[in-house]
Design a protein around this nucleic acid. Structure first.
Lengths: 355, 355
DNA sequence: TGCTAGCAATCTTTTGTCTTGACTGCTAAC
DNA sequence: GTTAGCAGTCAAGACAAAAGATTGCTAGCA
């Protein structure tokens, strides 16, 4: 597509998007002349703009207005960012880079906070709405299950230890007077059935598929524990979406009417919708930029996402949602810097517990 | 105040508020004549309106407009609702009452869901933003603490059992090879120190205030456990605020500009602000109605709250936040019906576990 | 004394018209 | 291929006039 463009057309198109991103106003031929091409006349630029309009890159809101970029123009712009800058973090000031690192070195208490803090930093630095989706249940394996009988009641606590943390805030009822040996035997059966399994594969299964005849004595307990695991899965699929700066979008004139604002906010406040906005990506793609309703799924919006890995495993996706004319340079820069910082931080914190 | 009003003035004032609540438009003398006083002329009503304006109940947006209610008018209106209707639930249709009960009988899984579901129902029925604040930590007593060593790592799980549920998703590190007797001894000391205490009183305390010399061996563990309790307190003060229908306010013309909408939403999205909006009430007050910025704390808003009790204990507060001209009759009706339904439901679910 | 009809006064809202300013597209010349 | 110049188009703002809503006032009536 951009192969067909002459060098001057590229300068004009890139400059037009640049100007439109910073001002939000339609860009006129003389604007481009002043800022980017002082040695050619505005009339020349006008004929170039005419051509670009015919090619579908730009349009006029009305006859006597300047041009505004269309989706293809933004795509061209983003592509040129990705190819031009070998070092993306150079899009940020040193101050901003340092700020990101500092936040993480000082503020951390829990693993869950990392994602929240990351989302917050991204939103603060870009001034757009950001989100962070943890894929924390994707590769979680159950290590060990323990039943602990409480002395004061006929309940037992179920401790489910995984390689990523622990599930342990649930109890099950044990009928009547129960001997310690029964609890131990039940623990052994639980481990035989569940230990070593990926937590996700248990989501749609029921107990009868897992047990054999000798385990029938413990069927009730196995049922209860599987129920606990399923509840945990469903709860955590929602809990692991963090949104920050949801109201920042309202600062942009694109959302200066309540109708659009409400529409945007209703998308943003539903965490399952946000999960859906994250296309399940080929993990080789570093950044995904989707512009406009059809691509992004949200009216008048663009979404930039980045997959975050530890080793080869995708542990989460961070994203920014903003107006189509968002500051892509800065957003990609921030996401990239965050990516580098995060992999360091997560490595350091690896092995810590997590609720 | 309302003692001074003649019967006709009461009819006019009540009617004016009623009309304004349903239309949102300034009410003219002839509006009142048509709907409430067909046997007197509009000129007569005008002179009454004049008097009411002088008394501070109503005002004119401009010379050629009808009147709109001021804060005192709403207060008069709410008072007349509270005194007129001996049975508040009669403000709801049978269908609505049944709907509230059904939701609770079918949908319940966990205690935490009750509050969320209650907030949702209130918001759905009233069409305003609702919130529910649990006072769940107010009277929680620590029953028992157990340390459970995991076989596969040098961590121990801390189980804190309270009379309202359990805190148990945290671990502490135990250095080196540790004998079971040490764990048991530590558990005993933990119970000696913490068992029987109200969880809230531990918020600002540090370990050295709690222990004597012979416990020094376990100081590290006690410190860790107290830290866990404190984190739990701080986390749960936020978690127990549920907001539903935050965007519904944007449907009302009062919030038809982005500036006001944003202001409102930023108040509503901060859970600690919402906690503050709940005045710590005399629990003998059934309903609190606060109108306008000074009383409610939120610009252009009214807040209606109700304290929910089990026995004598206040377990939570539900509230509705809406425009000053909200449908107080319906809101109070819904909150009242919810109150009755909730006490039944909570009684039934008492004794269940709760994370 | 209280109520009412009628009317002038006041102010918002709507509509229409005009002007200004910002661009463009076109054309003829370089 | 590029440019200068100019007519054409459209949005936006200013202003005026007209329409509509509602009031307060006043004089007269029961």
């Amino acid at each position: 597509m951009s192969k067909e463009l002459t060098e001057r057309k590229k300068i004009i198109l890139h400059g037009l998007v640049d100007l439109y991103i910073s001002t939000g106003q339609p860009v006129s031929s003389s604007d481009i002349q002043n800022k980017f091409l002082p040695n050619v006349s505005s009339a020349t630029i006008r004929s170039e703009l005419n051509a670009l309009e015919a090619m579908g890159y730009i349009e006029q809101p009305h006859t006597s207005a300047g041009r505004i970029p269309l989706k293809d123009a933004y795509k061209f712009y983003v592509d040129s960012i990705n190819s031009d800058n070998s070092n993306r973090s150079s899009m940020l000031t040193d101050q901003e880079t340092a700020m990101i690192r500092n936040k993480f070195l000082t503020n951390l208490i829990q693993v869950e906070d990392i994602s929240k803090e990351a989302a917050k930093i991204i939103s603060d630095l870009t001034n757009y709405t950001s989100f962070f989706v943890e894929k924390s249940l994707a590769n979680v394996i159950i290590d060990e299950i323990k039943l602990v009988k409480l002395s004061k009641s006929n309940k037992a606590i179920v401790l489910i230890v995984t390689d990523h943390g622990m599930i342990s805030d649930k109890t099950i009822d044990i009928e009547g007077e129960v001997r310690p040996e029964f609890i131990d035997a039940a623990s052994r059966v639980l481990n035989k059935v569940f230990a070593g399994k990926f937590i996700n594969e248990l989501e749609l299964i029921n107990v009868s598929e897992l047990i054999n005849d000798e385990m029938n004595e413990f069927k009730g307990i196995l049922d209860d524990v599987l129920g606990i695991i399923k509840i945990y899965i469903s709860e955590h699929q929602d809990k692991n979406v963090f949104v920050e700066g949801a109201l920042k979008m309202l600062d942009y004139p694109e959302y200066n009417n309540v109708e659009d604002a409400k529409n945007f906010l209703s998308v943003i406040s539903d965490k399952s919708t946000i999960s859906e906005l994250m296309v399940s990506e080929d993990s080789s793609i570093e950044f995904s930029v989707r512009i406009g309703k059809e691509d992004s799924g949200v009216d008048k919006c663009a979404i930039v996402t980045a997959a975050y890995k530890v080793g080869d495993e995708v542990v989460g996706q961070a994203g920014v949602i903003g107006p189509e004319r968002m500051d892509y340079k800065k957003v990609i820069g921030v996401l990239d810097c965050m990516k580098k910082t995060l992999s360091t931080v997560i490595d350091n914190h690896d092995g810590d517990n997590n609720g």
